[in-house]
Amino acid sequence: MKATGRTITSILIVILALLFLSPIYIMLVNSFKTRSELYENALALPSSFSFEYYQKAMEKMNFLHVFINSAYVTIVTVIFVVVLSSMTAWMLVRKDNLMSKIIFYSFVATMLIPFQTLMMPLMQVMDWIRTNLHIPMLNTHGGLIFMNIGFHAGIAVFLYHGFMKSIPIALEEAATLDGCSKFGLFWRIVFPLLKTITVTVAILDIIATWNDYLLPSLVLSDKGLRTIQLSTFYFFGEFTIVWNQAMAGLTLTIIPIVIFYAFAQKYIIKGIAAGAVK
């Protein structure tokens, strides 16, 4: 009876996996088809596999340029999130008082607020800062990075906070007695012990920042500043959509992050489990 139950469960899992993977299959096979083949049967395999549409998609997207833009925004965002969130979580754990708890739960609460409810007020505030304080928060990579840091800080502080509790305070006390400064205490003693959770936070932020379309579409308007996700907009015109090139372009946008995730998934699971338990 148990064996039958496991078999049924396995079949259901396979069916669900195929359902979730079906959009990727459709995207891949249609990226190789001519327009006539695509409209004839979207699910069938192409008659021939040619990278012609991938070449055209790369030219239309200006792939190398937008790839560099995305990489720059992603790397800088992750560096700031890791540095600021780890230091914040450390202070919140070590200063165990009412104010630190309020601040921590405020960070946690930001994880529950949908971005769609904040995007219009956020753009109004950023426009006010640009107009009155003359700080270029809109249509700049710096402004986008600043907003990314704010949106990603909540989960990063949450993960670091859980992991930080496992670090013995005796290590820090011993370093302090040896004359170590606060700055040295964190970077020489505490931060090296956060390697597992730091890798997890970095991976999650890389995936989130790379795949983000909505926030960059609100912040960036100049063509030269667009990220790789925004570049796919070129394929969807007002009256016509070049579907085979669009599918090729979408495939190009997800290939780097899929490869990255394939190598990094074990660290995500390990880090989240460690942070949640501790």
Rank of each mutant, 00 (worst) to 15 (best):
T4H: 11
R6F: 08
T7S: 12
I8K: 05
S10W: 13
I11S: 08
V14R: 11
L16P: 06
L18K: 12
L19M: 11
L19Q: 05
P23K: 12
I24T: 11
Y25N: 12
I26S: 14
L28S: 07
V29K: 08
S31C: 01
F32L: 14
E37H: 05
E37N: 04
E37W: 01
N41Q: 02
L43H: 05
L43F: 14
L45I: 10
S47D: 09
S47V: 08
F51N: 04
F51S: 02
A57F: 03
A57K: 01
A57N: 00
M58A: 09
E59Y: 04
M61V: 00
L64A: 11
L64W: 15
H65C: 02
F67D: 01
N69A: 04
A71W: 07
V76D: 02
V76P: 02
V76E: 00
V78D: 05
V82F: 08
V83W: 09
V83Q: 03
L84Q: 10
S85L: 05
M91R: 12
V93T: 14
R94W: 01
K95S: 02
K95C: 04
M99R: 08
I102P: 04
I103Y: 09
S106D: 13
M111Y: 02
M111C: 11
M111D: 07
I113H: 13
F115A: 13
M119E: 15
M120Q: 14
L122H: 00
M123G: 14
M123C: 14
V125G: 03
M126C: 04
T131Y: 00
N132T: 10
H134V: 08
H134Y: 07
I135H: 06
P136Y: 10
T140V: 13
G142K: 15
L144W: 06
I145K: 09
M147P: 05
A153P: 00
G154D: 10
A156D: 12
V157T: 07
K165Q: 15
S166V: 04
I167W: 08
P168R: 00
A170H: 07
E173I: 01
A175M: 14
T176D: 01
L177G: 01
D178N: 10
D178E: 12
C180P: 08
C180Y: 13
C180V: 15
S181G: 03
F191I: 07
P192E: 09
K195Y: 13
T198C: 04
V199M: 13
A202L: 06
I203R: 05
I203T: 14
L204Q: 02
D205R: 07
D205Y: 02
D205L: 08
I206R: 03
T209E: 09
W210R: 15
D212H: 07
L214A: 11
P216G: 02
L220E: 02
D222N: 15
R226S: 02
R226A: 02
I228E: 05
Q229T: 15
Q229F: 07
L230F: 04
S231V: 00
F233W: 15
F236S: 15
F239E: 11
V242Q: 10
W243G: 07
M247P: 01
T251P: 07
I254M: 15
I255A: 15
V258Q: 07
I259V: 15
I259A: 12
Y261V: 05
A262C: 12
F263K: 11
A264Y: 09
K266V: 03
I268M: 12
K270W: 00
G271A: 09
I272T: 06
I272V: 13
A274W: 02
G275S: 12
